[in-house]
Simulated scan of single mutants.
Amino acid sequence: MTGAGGRAFCSGGDLKTYMPWRRQLAQEGNESTISFGGMTLPHEITKPVIAAIQGYCIAGGLELAMACDIRLSTADSKFGLAEVRWGVLPGGGGTQRLPRLVPVGYALEMILTGESITAQRAEQIGLVNRIVEAGDLLDTAFKVAQRIVENGPLAVQAAKKAVQQGLSAALQDGLTLEAALQRQLLQSEDAQEGLKAFAERRSPVFKGVAS
């Protein structure tokens, strides 16, 4: 996922039109969860999603990026959740995802001050995975995607599920989930092919077949 052009990944909703509409909905009792095309809802997206970020990644744009699994950024990018400056809070998952991605103190500083941070700072606190040259941004994102695609699809989906669901569970529950998913994978044709390919010193040919 990336933005069009180099000025911004996404700078969020238009405060002159979008937020007044949201306010009207709230006053009418019809307020609903912000979804950004469904990306920021708590639905389980089984496919890995990579954000290639260049330029401003602000408000709803950052919430959209945080809903992705991997974030790559150019050095000129800016990140922030400025909603409190205008009397509202980051309502598209910002208050929930940011503290899960970075230490709580850093998350609260960004959320409560509304100030933006540089790409370098975002990398330091773990908000972005790495900074790359602007000309290499999409190529790097596709290379990461290709590396993921080469792995067992069932294993990738299961590993993502284990991480995401485990983060909101007690450690013992997460370990139980991990063990259950591993049992399922070990019974799959993909696991059989992967182990066979390792023994034969060749690249596996996965089919995404559970059993």
Rank of each mutant, 00 (worst) to 15 (best):
F79Y: 15
G174N: 07
A134L: 10
D136C: 01
I45F: 14
A180D: 14
K16G: 07
E109P: 04
R71Y: 00
S35W: 08
Q24F: 15
T2I: 02
A210S: 13
R85M: 13
R130F: 00
T113N: 05
Q157T: 09
V163C: 08
M66S: 08
Q24D: 13
E123P: 01
K207S: 05
I111Q: 12
L171F: 14
G94S: 10
D69E: 04
P153E: 11
T46C: 12
A162V: 11
G13E: 06
L101M: 13
A159K: 01
Q96L: 13
P153H: 11
L112F: 08
S35K: 11
A119Y: 12
F9Y: 15
T140F: 01
Q120D: 12
K16C: 07
I70N: 01
E44A: 13
A170V: 04
R22K: 13
S35Q: 10
V104R: 12
N151W: 02
Q192A: 14
L137Y: 13
Q54E: 13
L195Y: 05
L181W: 05
L101N: 06
L177K: 11
C57M: 08
A159H: 00
A75K: 12
R202Q: 13
T113K: 04
A158D: 04
I148V: 06
G38A: 06
L175Y: 07
Q96D: 15
A162N: 05
R97P: 00
T118M: 05
A67G: 07
E193I: 10
D139Q: 06
G105H: 07
A170Y: 05
I58D: 08
Q182G: 02
T118S: 15
G55I: 03
V102F: 02
K160A: 02
E123T: 01
I125N: 03
A82E: 08
L137R: 13
G55P: 00
